[in-house]
Design a protein around this nucleic acid. Sequence first.
DNA 1: CTGTTAGCGCATTCAT
DNA 2: ATGAATGCGCTAACAG
Lengths: 341, 341
Amino acid sequence: MTRRTLEDVARAAGVSLATADRALNGRAGVREQTRRKIENAAQRLCYRPDRAAAALARGQRWRFCFVLPAGDNVFMNQLAEAVRETAAWMAEERADIELVHVDVFDGPVLARELARLGPRYDGFAIVALDHPAVREAIDALVADGRYVVTLVSDVPTSRRHHYVGLANFAAGRTAGTLLGRFVGARLGTVGVIAGSLALRDHAERLAGFVQALSEVAPHLDVAATREGRDDRERTQEATEDLLGAHPGLVGLYVIGAGKRGAVAALEIARRAGDIIFVAHELTPDTRRFLLSGTMAAVVNQDAGHEARSAARVLLAYCEDRAINAAQERIRIDVFVKDNLP
Amino acid sequence: MTRRTLEDVARAAGVSLATADRALNGRAGVREQTRRKIENAAQRLCYRPDRAAAALARGQRWRFCFVLPAGDNVFMNQLAEAVRETAAWMAEERADIELVHVDVFDGPVLARELARLGPRYDGFAIVALDHPAVREAIDALVADGRYVVTLVSDVPTSRRHHYVGLANFAAGRTAGTLLGRFVGARLGTVGVIAGSLALRDHAERLAGFVQALSEVAPHLDVAATREGRDDRERTQEATEDLLGAHPGLVGLYVIGAGKRGAVAALEIARRAGDIIFVAHELTPDTRRFLLSGTMAAVVNQDAGHEARSAARVLLAYCEDRAINAAQERIRIDVFVKDNLP
DNA sequence: CTGTTAGCGCATTCAT
DNA sequence: ATGAATGCGCTAACAG
């Protein structure tokens, strides 16, 4: 029982190859009646198109552009590396991926860059700042027929086709529940250091964290949130500030980058391991901190999965195929020292 | 800048298409000197074969057989469903997947079945019992040129090509760390219920659990392990037994199936939510228990990921391609009520 | 609106 | 040991 081909369908429907192709691929120029005849035949024969042959015949290659922030954030470096690996893999799937670094923290700059890049690509994966100019630039790309997915950081009010990234409120809740349960019955204060509350993802994580913590450990106080600007030294200062202001600090949640600074402060104060420390993203640093006991848990998003997912989703849109929701859902990974990959 | 084809390479090397093909695909009948010339040319031109064209020309389809245990274990049902979804997806990648249910808990029966199925497939993904007869049957398949991956449950001493599943010792450790930290400073006893310690994965999880628990919470006692046979009623009995024998029970770890029974016992004793309850596999039940607070955490393996991974790995072996280790590593997922998918 | 035809890039005969 | 020729299943350009 060999597979059916388009030719089989055409013959069964009494039409030519070309007409069968047009009908099944939704191209114009087929009488409704003919189309139904062909669709029936396809159904009857259990026809499944051969993707390899279609790809070969079409010959077209898709051009995707991944826009990541300039700068040397560890997570973003991981993501960039993952994009490069994905590019190597997608090259065999008839898609060329280019990686562009932009100062995404400047809305107008990012918007201008997107407008400039627009004509050269079929699809975009953008680590986007939620800024009116960016929203408008994304909408312009979409209006122009480009496919756009936001990556890691979303612009929910834009017309982007898809968001590949964490549900940040839930991620914050996860951190809150873990920290609260780890602290247990102890009384005291919990400190929070965000990169910047102007960043949508940080703000969402914070809200989720506070909500979950208040549910699971209502006996704990939450100190006023400090901003560490995703910077090591500022985060260290913020942690020191926190330690000074709250001698009864029992927990610390760092929402963004700069974790090494927080650890330095904890170690100087000889509170490492004593204060329950939870943060985001698995990196060589946080990995080390988990193993040493300084960090209790890490809430992570898998950069490799995100890069691959963005590429798959763009490809699916371009080829008008369905996407597998289960496969593309970005999980909120929890790591303790024992389940490190 | 269009892509290079085999034809380009052949021309650059001054040979014919056929010879270039033979050389680059390691087929016999090419002088060493010629081969080097061709390989150089390929290198120079950055030649990457077009998978679609190769697939089309080859025309062959692979036949894979997934062997799962008969019976109605919830997790195995999820896995079976995932295999069916994977089959639909792989059908377009020139691979036909068939799903076979066997009583895998009977070594000789499984072995006989494998021997019978052997000739009809190119590759096997097997949920295997670690039994001498099974090991031998797997080795026979491999000796016969079949590709074999073990799925979920490994036979490490066999010659299987790959194992798709959890590192069970680490999974047990993860459960131990979580449970220990959640219990915190409280004193008391921790109960463990395994399906059967004759199952390699359960034994490994138990060892990991005990080890990690003793590190993170040395003040806790661990009660003698009960066996629940992955059965709801027996697990309920075991839990009741545990509750009776240890009034100071503060934690419960259920390694296998039968969780509903444990919850029933906890609820009857009015200790649900009070006793820290950790178990494996995310199912509609455990999901509900997490949300209700009865269960503190679930250590999970993603059946969808496992099914897809097994299929990808078999295909990679058949087509002699490299496998992406990062993508194929099965993660030890941790779920609390806040990061449920 | 529908049919005919020429490839897409590669694997594989069959010659030489 | 090497080359020429054929076709995989489909798309797209062109003809009618």
